[in-house]
Design a binder for these strands. Structure first.
Lengths: 342, 342
DNA sequence: GCGTGCGATGTTATCGATATCATAATTCGG
DNA sequence: CCGAATTATGATATCGATAACATCGCACGC
């Protein structure tokens, strides 16, 4: 459909590397003064600062943060670990967090842990080798090895998107089991008596599913099907999931999907199979992804304020970095958004 | 719907910071030997290596890459700049690239430039301050300031997802204009005579749209509507786009959307408005996102092998870092995947 | 008119690792 | 068995910035 082309590489000019002493020499000041112009401009007279800035521009000086970091023992870098960016789930918190930390002078290094257990261990070691000034972790349940590493490293840590009795440091999340239970109550209030759940193979999705099922059983009602899907789960996983459980469905069943992708897949497959929604199959997703809102008809989901999580995480982490005592745990609310699928 | 809770923070233990000299002392060797065990194990006898490894484990030593980087003048870090992770567009290349560079011993620092022009400038400066060993840029058209910075920095650069006559260093991408033209030909071959395009406000989406329109005009055929959307564009943008142009549509129109999100939105809105597809409105998206495949019915799109771009970018960049001469330009093919919407 | 204090700048030591060169231990062919 | 090549390890200097302390000059108050 199109060609593959290969051209030769261009040549490059001579190697140059401007350092702080070069700038200092040109501006006729000590290197320390250049450093002050860049880091604590208030402590330099406006006159010299101008001379130094001129020299910086003239030479195209770009400070070396590696050297600066070694000397000051501050990397001005934050590492953020999320399971994946292939799902819209973590976009909001990560983007907000990154933007706010950026304003505060920190770069955020994003790392993907995947959903394979143990993938996190190597990653955390590798990341700590860069001496981040802070850490953002997705999830609050980590291996003993990681806990030990983090404790030794003395790095401020904020855990998001989860809850735990004793967070490593600061936690900003919500209670997944309670959320599942709330979805159960929502369905029950709608008169449902038969339920199903499709959950990704991921600890937090599992917690939502467990909370859902537990509450239903508390009410003495029936869970007709429960199925575990890939993580992160795709639309196709949701479709396949529905095909797998279709034989078990009651004439009127309420389905909880662990993400909006799953719920959307289930809805598509139901429509294809001639199962009406919400009549025969009520569906609730999770995440309030755009697809839940903008598809036709839009479907019911649970919204968590991802931007708020990112913002509070940034605030808490900055407070922690600056040595302030901060609350150990911030649990945020969630909200069921009823739409046409229930 | 749920509560907000705040608990006090936990206390932390004493501060420790193990360094290479501590490990060396415990193992009874010189620091340099510890360094060799970690970086060039072949050059150390198995016996001493074992002793050193034992000491490392016992002390929980995590090497300081900041110090190592200053000394060796290699950061073992690659910076990757993409416009956004809110769209599935760049997932495949980025994930593949990150995984491969990771295997080669490099960490990838992901940075988001957004679609605002000029956002890239500050970002590149900030990133160069960390002295990355290589750079991955999305897009091949940069400001003069950036070009100068990159040239001075002498960093290997690979540009992806675009084409340009004279790439900064290495380029791995495809020709967006040609892609748009191919979609035009595809529609024309299907007997279409009236066309519309919805394109995101982003240089590469614009190139696809322009290529599409140009080819249609070459054939003397009619473009009934042309509209620019937000970048990155959402399903809702696609829906709104279709509403905006619906009055201009011919009884049988072929629509090219700059991404599958746009195409999906247009299809949803068309269905809602009672416009049949492909009968009255044929639609082709771009990206082969999951939604194009897994929705019902699936719709036509153009696929680019994102994983291949990521892989080749990693290979080329590694070759560049290791001083090899590499091709300046690799253009990859694309493929139109006909489905039920055309 | 002179000490005091403060703002502006400079000097020196250091951050924690690795490049490079030097040296000790070992192997091996003839 | 011996000297040269090879392997394993150590000593020293250095990467480029900043923390901490020192110094200088000037304004200001009494």
């Amino acid at each position: 459909m199109s060609k593959t082309t290969i051209n030769p590489p261009p040549n490059r000019g001579p190697l140059v590397s401007v350092k702080i002493t070069d700038v200092a020499a040109l501006a006729g000041v000590a290197p320390m003064t250049v450093s002050r112009v860049l880091n604590t401009p208030d402590r330099v007279s406006e006159l010299t600062a101008a001379r130094v800035r001129a020299a910086i521009d003239q030479l195209g000086y770009v400070p070396n943060l590696i050297a600066g970091g070694l000397s000051s023992r501050r990397s001005r870098m934050i590492a953020a670990i999320v399971p994946t960016i292939a799902s819209p789930m973590f976009n909001e918190p990560v983007q907000t967090f990154t933007a706010l930390m950026g304003e505060a002078g920190y770069h955020v290094m994003l790392a993907l842990s995947g959903y394979t257990p143990g993938g996190e261990d190597r990653l955390v070691r590798a990341i700590l080798a860069r001496r981040p000034d802070g850490l953002l972790l997705t999830g609050a349940h980590h291996s003993a090895a990681i806990r030990a590493l983090l404790a030794d490293a003395r790095v401020p840590v904020v855990e998001i998107w989860d809850t735990a009795e004793h967070p490593t440091d600061v936690l900003v999340g919500f209670d997944h089991a309670e959320l599942g239970a709330a979805v159960a109550e929502f369905f029950i209030a709608g008169g449902h008596t038969h339920f199903a759940v499709l959950s990704a193979r991921d600890p937090r999705a599992a917690a939502r599913g467990t909370g859902f099922v537990a509450r239903i059983r508390q009410h003495g009602l029936t869970v007709v099907a429960e199925r575990v899907l890939n993580a992160p789960s795709s639309i196709e996983d949701g479709r396949q999931g529905l095909r797998d459980i279709v034989a078990s469905l009651a004439p009127r069943t309420a389905l909880f999907g662990s993400s909006d992708m799953v719920a959307f897949g289930a809805l598509i497959e139901a429509r294809k199979l001639g199962i009406s929604s919400p009549g025969q199959l009520a569906v609730c997703g999770f995440g309030d992804f755009e697809i839940s809102r903008s598809t036709e008809p839009p479907f019911t989901t649970v919204r968590v304020d991802g931007a708020a999580i990112g913002r509070i995480a940034a605030e808490q982490l900055l407070a922690r970095i600056n040595g302030a005592a901060t609350p150990g745990r911030v649990l945020l609310p969630f909200e069921i958004i009823p739409r046409s699928s229930t």
